[in-house]
Each structure stands twice: as C-alpha cells, then as structure tokens.
C-alpha cells in the first residue's frame, strides 16, 4: 500500500519515519555507540596485550557468559518498571540444590531438574508476593528474597563446599563447538529466543505496555499481575540456567556463590540502554553490554588493575555511558 493513497483517503500515513538524517540517526543510536565502545576495547586489548588477544580471545568471552543468561529476563523485569536484586541468591540456591541432589543420587537429569525447579520456584515466590501485596515494591520484596535465599544457602552449606557434579559440566565452561565456545552458542540461541519473544510476541508487547503505563495497560485489559508473575518466574528459571553454566567454570559451590551478580546483571542492562523506570529498551543493547563488561574486566586484569579498582571502573563506565546517552538525546 503506498503512502500517497492512504493519506488521501484518510488523514494520516503508515510511514514509520520521515527519511531525514536516517544514516546519521542509525550511526549514533545507542546500540551503535555500544559497538564503538566494544571495538575500542578490542583495539586497546590488541595494542596493549597482543598475545592475550590472539591466545585467549575465546576465554574472555567465556568468562562473561555464566551471568549473561540472567541479562535477558532482567531486561524484561526492568521493562516492567520493576527490579530483581535476588538473582545472585537464586543462582546460589539453585546451584546448591543441583549439588545436593547430585551428591545424593548421582542422577544428572534429576539434579538439573531440581536446579531449574528451585530457580523457577524462587522467582515465582518473588512474583507472587509482588503481585499479591501491592504495598511492597519489587525492590523491597527482592531485597528480602536476596537475604532469605542466601540465608537458606548459608544455613545448609555453612562452611561446606559441594564439589560433586556431572563431568560434562566442564565442557559448558571451556569447550568449543565449530570454533566457538559452547556457552556462546547457547547464549546466541537464548538471545534469539528472548529477542523474538520481546519484539514479536503478544507477551513482549504487554511488557512494554505495562512498563510505559501500568494503569493504562490494566484498563486496556492486560492482566498485569499475570505478566509480572510470568516474568519473575522466568527470571528465577534463568538464574538456575546461569547456575549450571557457573558450575561449568568453577565446579564447587560455597555459601557466597554469585554474590554481587545481581548488580552486574542490572548494570549490563542499564548500559545496554534499558531504562530502570520501565518501558524503554531493546534486547540488542544489553547483548553488546555483556561483551563490553567482560572485555573491560579482562582488559584491566591483564594490565594489572586490582579487582577493587576494576569494580570502580565499571561504576564509572556506567555513569559516563548513561550521561552520554542523555546528552545525545537532548541535542537531537
């Protein structure tokens, strides 16, 4: 249908954009800027640590993968205008459950099932409390969740560490398939699925609607509580998936596993252009954010920056990046 005929008959077009400065707009959109940052880190790594660049490029990517699976559902939760800070604890709880069941039964399927079920249940519990008791905000509920789930892990494990896991877990963390890390393949598959769900399905549409205007969505017949419950459950489930890949890289579970992961995951989402006030963000930004974060971390590590200072650098990057985005939008 041509625009011409539509506008004559009615008084509007179905054109999506005005054609002006298309190229420029494309080049300075946030996702492109993230790509520039990523390329810059690559160049820096190549110049400063040429040997690492050639030798351990894949392991840098692998290092960032275990928490990346939590990034996708976290995008959804932030889109809803909520937040989930309990994911690090859910990861620990799920990993512990996997270890305990495997220790007791030696059954791989059973232990992975227990792990996923534990994560999903913990997420569901978060979502249930958030939707059932509207007086308490998601941040409070999940802070409580963070403390509670972590508490369970600490009581059960105390100073113990679980070390019996299926042998092939190591493959997840360190092996390649067709020249790329297995974890990267899985990441790509999840990225595709979550991207399609967010941008192409009715559920994705509802996420945006609720995040942009909760009341408006409710009056339009969106079941806001159902959407939230699904999303928080999904978050828990993906934290459990992350737990499996975490175990692939460091096959032991102690009580403080995954501490601080929640903030890294949220930081990646925010760096990727997802607004914490809801309704704004795409899947692609945080995907690039995952790589930026692991490259930044390794880049500094190779060049002798202390871990504490590395965390500071991440904080600075976050603020600078967000300021840059705000300023950019003011000028256009």
């Amino acid at each position: 249908m041509t625009t011409e005929t539509v506008s004559k008959k009615y008084r509007f077009t179905v054109e999506k954009s005005n054609g002006k400065n298309e190229v420029l707009k494309f080049l300075i959109q946030w996702e492109m800027i993230l790509i520039y940052i990523f390329i810059t880190f690559n160049i820096l790594l190549y110049v400063l640590n040429g040997d690492m660049f050639t030798r351990s490029y894949m392991s840098i990517i692998q290092a960032g993968m275990d928490l990346s699976f939590m990034v996708f559902p976290m995008i959804f939760i932030l889109l809803l205008g909520d937040i989930d800070v309990s994911v690090g604890s859910i990861l620990a709880l799920s990993a512990m459950m996997l270890g305990l069941v495997y220790e007791a039964t030696g059954n791989t399927v059973l232990s992975i099932g227990a792990c996923l079920l534990t994560g999903a249940s913990a997420g569901f519990l978060n979502g249930f409390i958030i939707t059932r008791f509207k007086e308490i905000s998601a941040v409070i509920v999940t802070i409580a969740g963070m403390l509670f789930y972590r508490g369970v892990v600490k009581i059960v494990l105390d100073v113990r560490s679980l070390t019996a896991f299926p042998d092939w877990f190591g493959e997840l963390g360190y092996s390649n398939f067709w020249g790329l890390p297995i974890s990267l393949w899985v990441f790509a598959i999840f990225a595709l699925i979550f991207g399609l769900v967010l941008h192409k399905t009715s559920y994705g549409r509802q996420l945006y609607a609720v995040g942009k205007n909760k009341d408006g969505a409710y009056f339009s017949g969106i079941k806001v509580n159902k959407v939230k419950l699904i999303t928080f459950t999904l978050m828990g489930l993906m934290a459990a998936v992350s737990a499996i890949f975490y175990l692939g890289r460091s096959p032991s579970v102690v009580a403080n596993v995954g501490e601080g992961y929640e903030l890294r995951v949220i930081a990646i989402c925010v760096l990727g252009g997802v607004s914490t006030s809801g309704g704004k963000g795409k899947i692609i930004g945080p995907i690039i954010g995952v790589f930026i974060m692991s490259f930044l971390d390794k880049l500094m590590g190779y060049n002798g920056v202390q871990p504490a200072a590395r965390v500071m650098a991440v904080g600075i990057l976050l603020v600078v990046a967000l300021l840059a985005e705000k300023i950019k939008f003011k000028q256009i």
Partner: peptide, 9 residues
C-alpha cells in the same frame, strides 16, 4: 492520558 492511552506507544 493516564488510563485511556499509553502515550509513548
């Protein structure tokens, strides 16, 4: 503006 529409969609 609050209930009828989602203004930025």
């Amino acid at each position: 503006q609050l209930h009828g529409l989602i203004l930025d969609m």
